[in-house]
Design a protein around this nucleic acid. Sequence first.
DNA 1: ATCATGCTTAGCCATATCGCTAACCAATCC
DNA 2: GGATTGGTTAGCGATATGGCTAAGCATGAT
Lengths: 113, 113
Amino acid sequence: MAKHDPQLDLLFHALADPTRRMMLNRLARGPAPVTELAEPTGFKLPTILRHLAVLEAAGLVATQKDGRVRSCAFQPAALRPMAEWMEEQRRLWEGRLDRLDDYVTRLMKERET
Amino acid sequence: MAKHDPQLDLLFHALADPTRRMMLNRLARGPAPVTELAEPTGFKLPTILRHLAVLEAAGLVATQKDGRVRSCAFQPAALRPMAEWMEEQRRLWEGRLDRLDDYVTRLMKERET
DNA sequence: ATCATGCTTAGCCATATCGCTAACCAATCC
DNA sequence: GGATTGGTTAGCGATATGGCTAAGCATGAT
């Protein structure tokens, strides 16, 4: 368990914006150039480009230029740290229940004696 | 599929901060008063209180006052929308692979003729 | 060569975020 | 009552975020 994982900062922060989630949603269906990515959002290109930079920083999207077109591709593997974090919380939470369970068990044993 | 789910904004934003994740991590082990929550972070109470407000806004933590002590409790159910969002991306992504698969299959059939 | 297209960079503005201190309740405790 | 403890509110300063316009650059089409 990392004490302070900057990767998670980037990941969660990237996903905290509806525009960026919309872009990801589009990319999950397949690669797309920047312009096509921008179109449904109604925002101007520079704005979209900055969002794209955030997504890239989080590793969620990889891009490359073919001629003058930049193609963007979703990187599903980038979601893993998030899934792992969730799993850790679940483990802790259930650990808590287990301990509570132990406590109850102990209480009942004491009552039996 | 919601077009713009503000709940996800709150959720992801709440999780995008290491201090807030540390607080959640503590709470996943069981409820705690504000002061105990603040201690390991090294931050002052007002700061922690604001982080706590963000966690509450996201539904991740519920609090109540007993006397002068405010007890904070982790609300694991709040993570569900996030899990569902992840699941949706996965579905989209695998849908894409399926279509790619169809494409390959079609190509091979055409080659057979 | 010229023009249109697609992206890119620089920089502005408004707002939000994150830390703090200072001051202020409200419930114990002596 | 008076002090202490736990929390709360108000407000400040530095920085980050999210939108924009204007201008630049590189490639593809004519």
